[in-house]
Design a protein around this nucleic acid. Structure first.
Length: 449
RNA sequence: GUGGUUGUAGCUCAGUUGGUUAGAGCGCUGGAUUGUGAUUCCAGAGGUCGCCGGUUCGAACCCGGUCUUCCACCCCA
Protein backbone atom coordinates (compact mmCIF):
# COMPACT_ATOMS: atom_id res chain seq x y z
CA UNK A 1 0.00 0.00 0.00
CA UNK A 2 0.98 3.56 -0.56
CA UNK A 3 1.38 5.55 2.67
CA UNK A 4 -0.61 8.73 3.01
CA UNK A 5 -1.95 11.13 5.61
CA UNK A 6 -5.44 12.69 5.82
CA UNK A 7 -5.99 15.73 3.66
CA UNK A 8 -5.33 19.03 5.34
CA UNK A 9 -2.73 17.50 7.67
CA UNK A 10 1.04 17.60 7.34
CA UNK A 11 4.26 15.91 8.40
CA UNK A 12 7.15 18.12 9.44
CA UNK A 13 10.84 17.67 8.73
CA UNK A 14 13.32 18.36 11.54
CA UNK A 15 14.24 21.82 10.27
CA UNK A 16 10.56 22.70 10.00
CA UNK A 17 9.90 21.57 13.54
CA UNK A 18 12.78 23.69 14.80
CA UNK A 19 11.40 26.72 13.03
CA UNK A 20 7.95 26.07 14.42
CA UNK A 21 9.48 25.73 17.87
CA UNK A 22 11.13 29.11 17.37
CA UNK A 23 7.71 30.68 16.83
CA UNK A 24 6.18 28.83 19.75
CA UNK A 25 9.11 29.82 21.98
CA UNK A 26 8.79 33.51 21.14
CA UNK A 27 5.05 33.45 21.79
CA UNK A 28 5.37 31.39 24.98
CA UNK A 29 8.06 33.71 26.34
CA UNK A 30 5.78 36.71 25.89
CA UNK A 31 2.77 34.89 27.36
CA UNK A 32 4.77 34.15 30.51
CA UNK A 33 6.15 37.66 30.69
CA UNK A 34 2.59 38.96 30.69
CA UNK A 35 1.61 36.70 33.57
CA UNK A 36 -0.33 33.99 31.74
CA UNK A 37 -0.16 30.46 33.14
CA UNK A 38 -0.15 27.26 31.10
CA UNK A 39 -3.09 24.86 31.20
CA UNK A 40 -3.93 21.80 29.15
CA UNK A 41 -7.25 20.35 28.04
CA UNK A 42 -8.06 17.19 26.06
CA UNK A 43 -7.98 17.25 22.27
CA UNK A 44 -11.46 15.67 22.40
CA UNK A 45 -14.40 17.38 24.04
CA UNK A 46 -17.96 16.24 24.44
CA UNK A 47 -19.82 17.30 21.34
CA UNK A 48 -22.35 19.09 23.57
CA UNK A 49 -19.52 21.36 24.73
CA UNK A 50 -18.61 22.33 21.20
CA UNK A 51 -21.84 22.54 19.23
CA UNK A 52 -23.65 25.84 18.99
CA UNK A 53 -20.67 27.95 20.06
CA UNK A 54 -19.30 28.83 16.65
CA UNK A 55 -22.43 29.54 14.67
CA UNK A 56 -24.07 27.30 12.12
CA UNK A 57 -20.98 27.33 9.92
CA UNK A 58 -18.79 26.30 12.83
CA UNK A 59 -20.94 23.28 13.69
CA UNK A 60 -20.51 22.00 10.19
CA UNK A 61 -16.73 22.27 10.53
CA UNK A 62 -16.52 20.22 13.72
CA UNK A 63 -14.76 16.89 13.43
CA UNK A 64 -16.98 14.30 15.08
CA UNK A 65 -15.59 11.19 16.70
CA UNK A 66 -17.54 8.04 16.08
CA UNK A 67 -18.70 6.21 19.21
CA UNK A 68 -16.92 2.99 20.06
CA UNK A 69 -18.49 -0.42 19.94
CA UNK A 70 -21.60 -1.33 18.03
CA UNK A 71 -22.59 2.27 17.51
CA UNK A 72 -25.26 1.69 14.87
CA UNK A 73 -27.28 -0.46 17.29
CA UNK A 74 -28.19 2.68 19.23
CA UNK A 75 -29.26 4.66 16.20
CA UNK A 76 -32.90 5.01 15.20
CA UNK A 77 -33.38 2.43 12.39
CA UNK A 78 -35.88 4.56 10.51
CA UNK A 79 -33.73 7.70 10.58
CA UNK A 80 -30.76 5.58 9.60
CA UNK A 81 -32.65 4.11 6.66
CA UNK A 82 -33.77 7.57 5.58
CA UNK A 83 -30.15 8.80 5.73
CA UNK A 84 -31.09 11.63 8.10
CA UNK A 85 -27.51 12.49 9.01
CA UNK A 86 -28.38 15.37 11.31
CA UNK A 87 -30.84 13.27 13.31
CA UNK A 88 -28.58 10.23 13.53
CA UNK A 89 -25.41 12.12 14.36
CA UNK A 90 -25.99 12.63 18.12
CA UNK A 91 -26.90 8.93 18.38
CA UNK A 92 -23.61 7.72 16.94
CA UNK A 93 -21.18 10.44 18.05
CA UNK A 94 -20.85 11.95 21.49
CA UNK A 95 -17.37 13.44 21.14
CA UNK A 96 -15.59 15.81 18.79
CA UNK A 97 -12.15 17.28 18.24
CA UNK A 98 -11.75 20.76 19.64
CA UNK A 99 -12.35 23.55 17.12
CA UNK A 100 -10.46 26.19 19.05
CA UNK A 101 -8.93 26.67 22.48
CA UNK A 102 -11.35 29.29 23.77
CA UNK A 103 -14.51 27.24 24.22
CA UNK A 104 -12.67 24.38 25.96
CA UNK A 105 -11.13 27.05 28.19
CA UNK A 106 -14.53 28.41 29.14
CA UNK A 107 -15.64 24.86 29.94
CA UNK A 108 -12.46 24.42 32.01
CA UNK A 109 -13.03 27.62 33.96
CA UNK A 110 -16.56 26.60 34.92
CA UNK A 111 -15.45 23.12 35.99
CA UNK A 112 -12.52 24.41 38.04
CA UNK A 113 -13.85 27.75 39.22
CA UNK A 114 -13.30 26.92 42.88
CA UNK A 115 -9.63 26.12 42.25
CA UNK A 116 -8.79 29.24 40.27
CA UNK A 117 -7.92 32.75 41.39
CA UNK A 118 -9.75 35.37 39.34
CA UNK A 119 -8.88 37.17 37.20
CA UNK A 120 -7.42 33.97 35.80
CA UNK A 121 -4.87 34.31 33.02
CA UNK A 122 -3.95 31.24 31.07
CA UNK A 123 -2.15 30.37 27.87
CA UNK A 124 -2.25 27.26 25.72
CA UNK A 125 -0.29 26.28 22.62
CA UNK A 126 -1.97 23.29 21.07
CA UNK A 127 -3.47 21.83 17.90
CA UNK A 128 -7.10 22.34 16.90
CA UNK A 129 -9.10 20.74 14.08
CA UNK A 130 -11.52 22.13 11.53
CA UNK A 131 -13.18 20.12 8.76
CA UNK A 132 -12.73 22.95 6.29
CA UNK A 133 -11.72 22.46 2.69
CA UNK A 134 -7.95 22.96 2.80
CA UNK A 135 -6.17 25.77 1.00
CA UNK A 136 -2.85 27.48 1.37
CA UNK A 137 -2.58 28.77 4.93
CA UNK A 138 -5.68 26.80 5.83
CA UNK A 139 -5.32 23.33 7.26
CA UNK A 140 -7.58 20.78 8.91
CA UNK A 141 -5.13 20.46 11.76
CA UNK A 142 -3.27 23.51 12.97
CA UNK A 143 -1.84 25.07 16.09
CA UNK A 144 -3.29 27.98 17.96
CA UNK A 145 -1.43 29.93 20.59
CA UNK A 146 -3.98 31.46 22.94
CA UNK A 147 -3.73 33.85 25.85
CA UNK A 148 -6.97 34.58 27.68
CA UNK A 149 -8.02 36.20 30.91
CA UNK A 150 -11.30 35.41 32.56
CA UNK A 151 -13.04 37.05 35.51
CA UNK A 152 -12.59 40.75 34.89
CA UNK A 153 -14.27 43.44 32.82
CA UNK A 154 -11.23 45.67 33.00
CA UNK A 155 -10.36 47.27 29.69
CA UNK A 156 -6.75 47.26 30.84
CA UNK A 157 -6.71 43.68 29.60
CA UNK A 158 -7.75 44.75 26.13
CA UNK A 159 -4.90 47.25 26.18
CA UNK A 160 -2.49 44.65 27.54
CA UNK A 161 -3.41 42.10 24.88
CA UNK A 162 -2.87 44.73 22.22
CA UNK A 163 0.60 45.32 23.60
CA UNK A 164 1.18 41.57 23.65
CA UNK A 165 0.21 41.22 19.99
CA UNK A 166 2.48 44.13 19.16
CA UNK A 167 5.47 42.78 21.06
CA UNK A 168 5.27 39.26 19.69
CA UNK A 169 5.24 40.44 16.10
CA UNK A 170 7.96 42.99 16.81
CA UNK A 171 10.14 40.20 18.19
CA UNK A 172 9.41 38.03 15.16
CA UNK A 173 10.43 40.95 12.95
CA UNK A 174 7.10 40.99 11.15
CA UNK A 175 5.38 44.27 10.35
CA UNK A 176 1.66 43.95 10.94
CA UNK A 177 -1.53 45.95 11.19
CA UNK A 178 -3.52 45.36 14.36
CA UNK A 179 -7.13 46.18 13.69
CA UNK A 180 -9.59 46.82 16.47
CA UNK A 181 -13.34 47.08 16.58
CA UNK A 182 -16.08 46.47 19.10
CA UNK A 183 -19.13 44.30 18.75
CA UNK A 184 -21.12 46.97 20.57
CA UNK A 185 -20.33 49.41 17.79
CA UNK A 186 -21.62 46.83 15.32
CA UNK A 187 -24.71 46.29 17.47
CA UNK A 188 -25.23 50.05 17.53
CA UNK A 189 -24.83 50.20 13.78
CA UNK A 190 -27.48 47.51 13.35
CA UNK A 191 -29.74 49.35 15.79
CA UNK A 192 -29.36 52.69 13.96
CA UNK A 193 -30.14 50.91 10.71
CA UNK A 194 -33.33 49.60 12.29
CA UNK A 195 -32.18 45.98 12.17
CA UNK A 196 -30.97 45.30 15.71
CA UNK A 197 -31.93 41.65 15.24
CA UNK A 198 -29.90 41.32 12.04
CA UNK A 199 -26.51 42.28 13.44
CA UNK A 200 -24.81 39.07 12.29
CA UNK A 201 -26.03 39.39 8.72
CA UNK A 202 -24.98 43.02 8.60
CA UNK A 203 -21.54 42.48 10.09
CA UNK A 204 -20.78 39.50 7.89
CA UNK A 205 -21.62 41.62 4.87
CA UNK A 206 -19.59 44.69 5.81
CA UNK A 207 -16.66 42.51 6.89
CA UNK A 208 -16.16 41.82 3.19
CA UNK A 209 -15.68 45.48 2.25
CA UNK A 210 -11.97 45.25 1.44
CA UNK A 211 -12.64 42.15 -0.65
CA UNK A 212 -15.77 42.99 -2.66
CA UNK A 213 -15.97 46.77 -2.38
CA UNK A 214 -18.84 49.01 -1.39
CA UNK A 215 -21.10 47.92 -4.23
CA UNK A 216 -20.52 44.32 -3.31
CA UNK A 217 -21.39 44.97 0.31
CA UNK A 218 -24.55 46.75 -0.77
CA UNK A 219 -25.60 43.78 -2.87
CA UNK A 220 -24.73 41.37 -0.07
CA UNK A 221 -26.85 43.34 2.38
CA UNK A 222 -29.83 43.41 0.03
CA UNK A 223 -29.41 39.68 -0.62
CA UNK A 224 -29.50 39.11 3.10
CA UNK A 225 -32.84 40.88 3.30
CA UNK A 226 -31.76 44.25 4.68
CA UNK A 227 -34.06 46.96 3.32
CA UNK A 228 -32.63 49.69 1.05
CA UNK A 229 -33.10 52.51 3.56
CA UNK A 230 -31.09 50.58 6.13
CA UNK A 231 -28.44 49.84 3.54
CA UNK A 232 -28.04 53.59 2.95
CA UNK A 233 -27.59 54.10 6.67
CA UNK A 234 -25.01 51.34 6.86
CA UNK A 235 -23.09 52.75 3.90
CA UNK A 236 -22.43 55.91 5.89
CA UNK A 237 -20.26 53.84 8.20
CA UNK A 238 -18.18 52.11 5.59
CA UNK A 239 -15.77 54.93 4.81
CA UNK A 240 -15.23 55.91 8.41
CA UNK A 241 -11.72 55.33 9.70
CA UNK A 242 -11.67 57.05 13.07
CA UNK A 243 -13.59 56.78 16.31
CA UNK A 244 -14.25 60.53 16.29
CA UNK A 245 -16.09 60.27 13.00
CA UNK A 246 -18.11 57.21 13.88
CA UNK A 247 -19.27 58.66 17.20
CA UNK A 248 -21.84 61.12 15.78
CA UNK A 249 -23.34 58.33 13.65
CA UNK A 250 -23.98 56.28 16.77
CA UNK A 251 -25.19 59.14 18.98
CA UNK A 252 -28.69 57.68 19.22
CA UNK A 253 -27.58 54.19 20.21
CA UNK A 254 -26.73 53.53 23.82
CA UNK A 255 -24.90 50.29 23.07
CA UNK A 256 -23.05 52.00 20.24
CA UNK A 257 -21.90 54.80 22.55
CA UNK A 258 -20.64 52.25 25.05
CA UNK A 259 -18.69 50.48 22.32
CA UNK A 260 -17.02 53.71 21.36
CA UNK A 261 -16.18 54.53 24.95
CA UNK A 262 -14.64 51.09 25.44
CA UNK A 263 -12.51 51.33 22.34
CA UNK A 264 -11.44 54.86 23.22
CA UNK A 265 -10.29 53.63 26.62
CA UNK A 266 -8.20 50.94 24.96
CA UNK A 267 -6.63 53.34 22.47
CA UNK A 268 -5.87 55.77 25.30
CA UNK A 269 -3.94 53.17 27.25
CA UNK A 270 -1.95 51.07 24.79
CA UNK A 271 0.86 53.61 24.47
CA UNK A 272 3.47 53.50 21.72
CA UNK A 273 3.51 50.42 19.53
CA UNK A 274 5.87 49.06 16.92
CA UNK A 275 3.06 47.92 14.65
CA UNK A 276 0.22 49.93 13.19
CA UNK A 277 -2.94 50.03 15.28
CA UNK A 278 -6.15 50.92 13.49
CA UNK A 279 -9.81 51.24 14.25
CA UNK A 280 -11.80 49.34 11.63
CA UNK A 281 -15.57 49.52 11.76
CA UNK A 282 -15.83 46.77 9.14
CA UNK A 283 -13.97 44.24 11.26
CA UNK A 284 -16.56 41.65 12.30
CA UNK A 285 -15.10 38.22 13.11
CA UNK A 286 -17.47 35.37 12.61
CA UNK A 287 -17.38 33.64 15.95
CA UNK A 288 -20.70 34.06 17.68
CA UNK A 289 -19.40 34.41 21.20
CA UNK A 290 -17.67 37.79 20.96
CA UNK A 291 -19.42 40.64 22.75
CA UNK A 292 -17.00 43.55 23.10
CA UNK A 293 -13.65 44.51 21.62
CA UNK A 294 -12.47 42.35 18.74
CA UNK A 295 -8.99 42.07 17.27
CA UNK A 296 -7.52 40.95 14.07
CA UNK A 297 -3.90 41.08 12.93
CA UNK A 298 -2.79 40.98 9.32
CA UNK A 299 0.59 41.36 7.65
CA UNK A 300 1.28 45.02 6.86
CA UNK A 301 1.03 45.01 3.09
CA UNK A 302 2.78 48.40 2.88
CA UNK A 303 5.90 46.87 4.42
CA UNK A 304 5.47 43.45 2.77
CA UNK A 305 3.56 44.07 -0.48
CA UNK A 306 3.86 40.55 -1.90
CA UNK A 307 2.32 38.70 1.00
CA UNK A 308 -1.17 37.39 0.54
CA UNK A 309 -2.36 35.85 3.74
CA UNK A 310 -5.50 36.10 5.81
CA UNK A 311 -5.42 37.10 9.44
CA UNK A 312 -2.49 35.73 11.43
CA UNK A 313 -3.91 36.47 14.86
CA UNK A 314 -7.25 37.44 16.28
CA UNK A 315 -9.31 37.62 19.40
CA UNK A 316 -11.80 39.54 21.42
CA UNK A 317 -13.94 39.78 24.50
CA UNK A 318 -16.63 37.25 25.29
CA UNK A 319 -18.76 38.30 28.25
CA UNK A 320 -21.13 35.36 28.40
CA UNK A 321 -19.22 32.26 27.42
CA UNK A 322 -18.89 30.79 30.90
CA UNK A 323 -22.58 31.40 31.53
CA UNK A 324 -23.39 29.00 28.70
CA UNK A 325 -21.76 26.24 30.73
CA UNK A 326 -23.79 27.09 33.78
CA UNK A 327 -21.10 28.96 35.61
CA UNK A 328 -21.12 32.43 37.02
CA UNK A 329 -20.95 35.02 34.30
CA UNK A 330 -17.24 35.59 34.07
CA UNK A 331 -16.23 37.96 31.32
CA UNK A 332 -13.27 36.83 29.29
CA UNK A 333 -10.97 38.35 26.71
CA UNK A 334 -8.19 36.75 24.74
CA UNK A 335 -6.07 36.59 21.63
CA UNK A 336 -5.00 33.72 19.46
CA UNK A 337 -1.89 33.51 17.29
CA UNK A 338 -2.10 31.39 14.15
CA UNK A 339 1.27 29.67 14.23
CA UNK A 340 0.93 28.01 10.83
CA UNK A 341 0.21 31.19 8.98
CA UNK A 342 2.93 33.02 10.84
CA UNK A 343 5.28 30.23 9.78
CA UNK A 344 4.29 30.53 6.13
CA UNK A 345 4.77 34.30 6.22
CA UNK A 346 8.14 34.20 8.00
CA UNK A 347 9.27 31.56 5.54
CA UNK A 348 8.26 33.60 2.54
CA UNK A 349 9.94 36.72 3.91
CA UNK A 350 13.00 34.78 5.09
CA UNK A 351 12.62 36.21 8.56
CA UNK A 352 13.68 33.10 10.47
CA UNK A 353 16.92 33.68 12.34
CA UNK A 354 19.90 31.68 11.07
CA UNK A 355 20.19 29.53 14.17
CA UNK A 356 16.49 28.60 14.22
CA UNK A 357 17.36 25.51 12.20
CA UNK A 358 20.67 24.56 13.86
CA UNK A 359 20.79 22.36 16.91
CA UNK A 360 24.19 20.66 16.86
CA UNK A 361 27.47 22.15 18.10
CA UNK A 362 29.76 19.35 16.92
CA UNK A 363 29.66 16.31 14.74
CA UNK A 364 32.53 13.91 15.41
CA UNK A 365 34.05 11.94 12.52
CA UNK A 366 36.50 9.13 13.20
CA UNK A 367 38.88 7.67 10.65
CA UNK A 368 39.57 4.23 12.06
CA UNK A 369 38.21 1.86 14.66
CA UNK A 370 40.62 2.88 17.40
CA UNK A 371 39.82 6.56 16.85
CA UNK A 372 36.14 5.69 16.96
CA UNK A 373 36.50 4.43 20.53
CA UNK A 374 38.41 7.60 21.40
CA UNK A 375 35.72 9.64 19.65
CA UNK A 376 32.91 7.99 21.56
CA UNK A 377 34.60 8.89 24.82
CA UNK A 378 35.17 12.45 23.65
CA UNK A 379 31.49 12.59 22.67
CA UNK A 380 30.46 11.82 26.26
CA UNK A 381 32.79 14.49 27.63
CA UNK A 382 31.41 17.13 25.28
CA UNK A 383 27.84 16.23 26.13
CA UNK A 384 28.53 16.36 29.86
CA UNK A 385 30.02 19.80 29.29
CA UNK A 386 26.64 20.86 27.87
CA UNK A 387 27.54 20.82 24.18
CA UNK A 388 25.16 19.34 21.64
CA UNK A 389 27.27 16.70 19.98
CA UNK A 390 26.86 13.68 17.79
CA UNK A 391 29.14 11.02 16.34
CA UNK A 392 29.21 9.24 13.01
CA UNK A 393 28.88 5.68 14.26
CA UNK A 394 31.56 4.01 12.18
CA UNK A 395 34.89 4.75 10.62
CA UNK A 396 33.86 5.42 7.04
CA UNK A 397 35.45 7.33 4.22
CA UNK A 398 35.91 10.93 5.28
CA UNK A 399 34.22 12.26 2.17
CA UNK A 400 31.10 10.29 2.92
CA UNK A 401 31.08 11.44 6.52
CA UNK A 402 31.63 15.07 5.49
CA UNK A 403 28.63 14.80 3.23
CA UNK A 404 26.56 13.51 6.12
CA UNK A 405 27.76 16.45 8.23
CA UNK A 406 26.67 18.79 5.46
CA UNK A 407 23.20 17.25 5.32
CA UNK A 408 22.89 17.31 9.08
CA UNK A 409 23.58 21.03 8.88
CA UNK A 410 26.35 20.59 11.46
CA UNK A 411 28.10 23.92 12.00
CA UNK A 412 31.45 22.22 12.61
CA UNK A 413 33.00 18.79 12.53
CA UNK A 414 35.70 17.34 14.75
CA UNK A 415 37.98 15.00 12.84
CA UNK A 416 39.63 12.27 14.87
CA UNK A 417 42.36 10.07 13.42
CA UNK A 418 45.35 8.38 15.00
CA UNK A 419 47.28 11.71 15.21
CA UNK A 420 44.42 13.49 17.04
CA UNK A 421 43.70 10.55 19.33
CA UNK A 422 47.34 10.36 20.36
CA UNK A 423 47.89 14.11 20.86
CA UNK A 424 44.40 14.98 22.21
CA UNK A 425 44.54 17.95 19.83
CA UNK A 426 41.57 17.78 17.50
CA UNK A 427 41.06 19.06 13.99
CA UNK A 428 37.96 21.24 13.92
CA UNK A 429 36.48 22.35 10.63
CA UNK A 430 33.98 25.19 10.32
CA UNK A 431 31.59 23.95 7.65
CA UNK A 432 30.47 27.39 6.51
CA UNK A 433 33.96 28.77 5.86
CA UNK A 434 35.98 25.60 5.39
CA UNK A 435 38.46 26.97 7.91
CA UNK A 436 40.22 24.29 9.93
CA UNK A 437 41.92 24.70 13.31
CA UNK A 438 43.41 22.54 16.04
CA UNK A 439 41.65 22.56 19.41
CA UNK A 440 42.14 21.02 22.83
CA UNK A 441 39.46 19.17 24.77
CA UNK A 442 39.08 22.18 27.07
CA UNK A 443 38.43 24.48 24.12
CA UNK A 444 35.87 22.09 22.67
CA UNK A 445 34.10 21.75 26.00
CA UNK A 446 33.93 25.53 26.38
CA UNK A 447 32.12 25.84 23.06
CA UNK A 448 32.02 29.27 21.38
CA UNK A 449 35.11 28.67 19.27
C1' G B 1 -20.68 22.06 2.00
C1' U B 2 -20.76 24.50 -3.66
C1' G B 3 -17.93 25.34 -8.29
C1' G B 4 -13.28 24.68 -10.62
C1' U B 5 -8.14 22.76 -10.76
C1' U B 6 -3.94 19.36 -10.13
C1' G B 7 -1.52 14.40 -9.89
C1' U B 8 4.33 11.28 -14.61
C1' A B 9 11.54 9.12 -10.96
C1' G B 10 13.06 11.23 -4.03
C1' C B 11 12.02 16.81 -5.85
C1' U B 12 10.65 20.41 -9.96
C1' C B 13 8.59 19.42 -14.46
C1' A B 14 8.57 17.80 -20.27
C1' G B 15 5.85 14.03 -22.92
C1' U B 16 3.47 15.41 -30.43
C1' U B 17 -4.21 13.65 -33.36
C1' G B 18 -4.14 7.51 -28.68
C1' G B 19 0.96 3.78 -31.54
C1' U B 20 7.21 -0.26 -30.21
C1' U B 21 11.55 0.45 -24.99
C1' A B 22 8.03 7.23 -20.93
C1' G B 23 12.40 11.76 -20.82
C1' A B 24 15.28 16.24 -18.62
C1' G B 25 17.36 19.03 -14.58
C1' C B 26 18.30 18.60 -9.55
C1' G B 27 18.91 14.86 -5.86
C1' C B 28 20.64 9.72 -4.80
C1' U B 29 24.58 5.57 -5.27
C1' G B 30 29.52 4.36 -6.95
C1' G B 31 34.16 5.98 -9.07
C1' A B 32 38.18 9.81 -10.48
C1' U B 33 40.19 11.21 -4.84
C1' U B 34 42.10 5.03 1.09
C1' G B 35 42.31 12.41 5.88
C1' U B 36 37.90 16.79 3.83
C1' G B 37 31.25 18.44 2.48
C1' A B 38 28.80 22.42 -0.27
C1' U B 39 32.15 23.55 -6.44
C1' U B 40 34.45 19.73 -11.22
C1' C B 41 34.40 15.14 -14.40
C1' C B 42 32.58 9.99 -15.44
C1' A B 43 29.23 5.99 -14.67
C1' G B 44 24.86 3.80 -12.52
C1' A B 45 20.30 2.86 -10.01
C1' G B 46 15.43 4.59 -9.72
C1' G B 47 8.58 4.96 -12.76
C1' U B 48 2.13 -0.80 -12.05
C1' C B 49 2.30 7.60 -15.38
C1' G B 50 -2.48 8.86 -7.89
C1' C B 51 -6.06 4.64 -7.49
C1' C B 52 -10.36 1.69 -9.55
C1' G B 53 -13.27 0.78 -13.68
C1' G B 54 -14.69 1.74 -18.95
C1' U B 55 -13.86 2.80 -24.45
C1' U B 56 -10.15 0.83 -28.05
C1' C B 57 -6.41 -3.87 -31.80
C1' G B 58 -3.65 -0.53 -28.57
C1' A B 59 -4.36 4.47 -23.06
C1' A B 60 0.39 8.59 -19.34
C1' C B 61 -3.07 10.75 -23.22
C1' C B 62 -10.22 9.72 -24.21
C1' C B 63 -14.67 8.72 -20.62
C1' G B 64 -16.75 7.71 -15.49
C1' G B 65 -15.83 7.21 -10.33
C1' U B 66 -12.61 7.98 -6.22
C1' C B 67 -8.53 10.03 -3.38
C1' U B 68 -5.15 14.13 -3.28
C1' U B 69 -3.30 19.30 -4.41
C1' C B 70 -4.25 24.17 -5.25
C1' C B 71 -7.96 28.19 -6.29
C1' A B 72 -12.71 30.88 -5.78
C1' C B 73 -17.07 30.81 -2.60
C1' C B 74 -18.73 29.84 2.60
C1' C B 75 -16.14 30.56 6.76
C1' C B 76 -11.62 31.25 9.21
C1' A B 77 -5.70 30.87 12.22
Amino acid sequence: MKPSIPKGTRDFLPHEVRRRDYIFDVIRRHFRRYGFQPIETPVMENLSTLTGKYGEEGDRLLFKVLNNGDFLRKADPQQLADQQSDAVLPQISKRGLRYDLTVPFARYVVMHQNDLAFPFKRYAIAPVWRADRPQKGRYNEFYQCDADVVGSDSLLYEAELTQLLDEVFATLGLKTVIRLNNRKILAGLAEIAGHADRMMDITIAIDKLDKIGEAGVEKELLDRGVDPAAVDTIKQFLGVTSLEKVAPLLADSEVGRRGIAELQAVFDRVGGLTNRLEFDVTLARGLDYYTGCIYEVAVDTDAHPDIRMGSIAGGGRYADLTGIFGGRDLSGVGVSFGAERIYDVLEELELFPEDASKDLDYLLLCLDDESLIHGFELLGKLRRAGRNADLYPEAAKLGKMMKYADQRNAPRVVIIGSREAASMQYSVKEMATGEQTTRSLRELEAGSL
